[in-house]
Write a protein that binds this DNA or RNA. Structure first.
Lengths: 134, 134
DNA sequence: TTAGTGCCTCCAGTAACTGGAAGGTCAATA
DNA sequence: TATTGACCTTCCAGTTACTGGAGGCACTAA
């Protein structure tokens, strides 16, 4: 099948699929006219990558996961280790964002949001006043 | 003061400060020898940007916030609008990450993590089995 | 034959830095 | 005075994961 159908089947933009080929994640055959000819196995791989990306794994992690998937001598420990590392990163990122959210929400709630210039958000950024979230 | 002290005072890497000058966020004077000469006002601006970045505002938002800060005819509504948009983005991002986290944590908990090859994480990515988090 | 769509490659741009090379400057020391 | 060594400069390239667009074939239907 051509790239458009591959794109439809995997929910990945054609551009992205070409990019994944560029960096060696998939190697679709070519027709005589130079068009990429995707097999079911390519679709499967692309969908695998798409799902892994959807869980936030980096492209390089996707590459590793794909290798592990294709390597029947893998151990589940290897996979779990990657997933656990990623989970830890997500947890950290969530914590950071929650912290931001807390401060920001507090500042927003303190700001009148009218047509006067006085603004606790700017004051806080300027550290003129210590407007912190508890 | 030289860039090293500016860096120490603002907790921003010297590289980053040069970058901020490059994109026009600050315009420190120069000494006869070509070294940047930071004034207190530059430090103040850099610290402002650093705090805004710490809250997750983009560099362009920082630029806008800085302009608003320096424009005494601003309205707090303008500032609040930017902050609220940003807050909404953060909320969305947190929600996405929580969703990832949920699925991932479930998969991790299902995986034995031993030296056998069988792995529900890979199975799920391959969509061979529907291992979803409820 | 022509139009329209789809495919190709290659180049550049995005966000926000970061690393490193090549080289000038300054203060203290031998 | 010469020389370290720390500090400063600019400029170029790389990072992540794509995305947009230009220029140009290929295919299909009318």
């Amino acid at each position: 099948m051509n790239i458009k159908e591959a794109s439809a089947r995997t929910n990945l933009p054609a551009k992205t699929i070409r990019y994944y080929e560029d960096i060696g994640l998939v190697q679709p055959d070519r027709n005589a006219n130079g068009y990429r000819a995707f097999e079911e196995s390519d679709i499967h791989k692309l969908a695998f990558i798409g799902r892994a990306r959807g869980l936030g794994f980096t492209v390089e992690e996707c590459r590793t996961l794909l290798h592990l998937y294709e390597d029947t001598t893998r151990t589940s420990a290897e996979v779990k280790s990657i997933a656990r590392d990623h989970l830890a990163r997500i947890d950290q990122r969530i914590a950071e964002m929650k912290e931001m959210r807390k401060t920001l929400a507090h500042l927003v709630s303190c700001c009148a949001g009218d047509d006067r210039p006085n603004c606790p958000i700017l004051d806080s950024l300027a550290a003129d006043q210590s407007v912190k979230s508890g």
